[in-house]
Deep mutational scan, measured.
Amino acid sequence: CLCSQPSVTRTVQKDGPNKGRQFHTCAKPREQQCGFFQWVDEN
């Protein structure tokens, strides 16, 4: 991610068109995240 740490892969849980879709995001706690976000299928 943007803070030079490994990102984590998560899955959208919220109902909607992206439910079940995976994405990479910053591994830090929400209030400390660098803002990195990337869909797995758009690499």
Rank of each mutant, 00 (worst) to 15 (best):
C1G: 00
C1L: 00
C1S: 01
L2I: 15
L2A: 05
L2S: 06
L2Y: 13
L2R: 11
C3Y: 02
C3G: 00
C3K: 00
S4V: 02
S4T: 07
S4I: 05
S4R: 09
S4E: 03
S4L: 07
Q5T: 14
Q5G: 04
Q5L: 15
Q5N: 12
Q5R: 10
Q5C: 15
Q5V: 15
P6R: 10
P6S: 10
P6E: 09
S7W: 15
S7G: 15
S7E: 15
S7V: 14
S7N: 04
S7P: 13
V8A: 09
V8M: 15
V8P: 04
V8H: 04
V8T: 15
V8E: 07
V8S: 07
V8L: 12
V8K: 07
V8Q: 09
V8G: 02
T9Q: 11
T9P: 03
T9A: 11
T9S: 10
T9G: 06
T9D: 02
T9W: 02
T9C: 09
T9L: 12
T9K: 06
T9M: 15
R10V: 09
R10L: 11
R10F: 12
R10E: 06
R10S: 11
R10M: 13
T11E: 14
T11R: 13
T11A: 07
T11S: 12
T11L: 09
T11C: 07
T11V: 09
T11F: 10
T11H: 08
V12R: 06
V12E: 13
V12D: 15
K14Q: 14
K14W: 09
K14L: 12
K14E: 13
K14C: 08
K14G: 13
K14A: 11
K14R: 14
K14F: 05
K14N: 14
D15Q: 13
D15E: 12
D15V: 08
D15G: 06
G16I: 02
G16N: 07
G16H: 04
G16C: 07
G16L: 02
G16R: 01
G16T: 10
G16K: 03
G16W: 01
G16Q: 04
P17G: 03
P17K: 09
P17D: 10
P17N: 05
P17Y: 04
P17V: 06
P17T: 06
P17W: 01
P17A: 11
P17C: 03
N18C: 14
N18G: 05
N18Q: 06
N18M: 06
N18K: 05
N18T: 07
N18Y: 10
N18L: 08
N18I: 04
K19A: 08
K19C: 09
K19S: 09
K19G: 05
K19H: 10
K19V: 09
K19W: 06
K19T: 07
K19E: 07
G20E: 04
G20K: 02
G20Q: 03
G20C: 05
G20D: 03
G20A: 04
G20L: 02
R21T: 01
R21G: 01
R21E: 02
R21P: 01
R21S: 03
R21N: 02
R21D: 04
R21A: 04
R21L: 05
Q22R: 13
Q22H: 14
Q22L: 07
Q22Y: 07
Q22P: 08
Q22E: 13
Q22V: 09
Q22G: 07
Q22I: 12
F23H: 05
F23W: 02
F23S: 02
F23D: 00
F23V: 03
F23A: 05
H24L: 15
H24D: 09
H24G: 02
H24V: 14
T25Q: 14
T25E: 09
A27Q: 06
A27P: 11
A27M: 06
A27S: 08
K28C: 04
K28L: 10
K28D: 02
K28G: 08
K28A: 10
K28V: 05
K28S: 08
P29W: 00
P29T: 10
P29S: 12
P29Q: 15
P29L: 07
P29M: 08
R30L: 14
R30W: 08
R30T: 15
R30D: 06
R30A: 15
R30E: 15
R30V: 12
R30P: 13
R30Q: 13
E31L: 08
E31D: 15
E31H: 11
E31P: 15
E31M: 08
E31A: 10
E31Q: 11
E31Y: 01
E31R: 08
E31W: 02
E31K: 14
Q32L: 08
Q32K: 05
Q32V: 10
Q32G: 12
Q32S: 14
Q32F: 03
Q32A: 14
Q33R: 15
Q33I: 00
Q33T: 13
Q33H: 14
Q33G: 04
Q33E: 10
C34L: 01
C34R: 01
C34I: 00
C34W: 00
C34V: 00
C34F: 00
C34P: 01
C34N: 01
G35T: 09
G35S: 11
G35A: 06
F36Y: 11
F36E: 02
F36W: 08
F36L: 02
F36H: 14
F36T: 03
F36A: 03
F36P: 02
F36R: 01
F36N: 01
F37L: 10
F37D: 00
F37Q: 05
F37C: 03
F37E: 05
F37G: 04
F37W: 10
Q38H: 04
Q38L: 08
Q38A: 11
Q38V: 07
Q38G: 08
Q38K: 08
W39M: 06
W39V: 14
W39A: 05
W39R: 02
V40R: 10
V40G: 11
V40C: 15
V40D: 09
V40E: 14
V40P: 03
V40Q: 13
V40A: 14
D41E: 14
D41Q: 12
D41G: 13
D41W: 04
D41A: 10
E42V: 12
E42D: 14
E42W: 03
E42Q: 14
E42N: 15
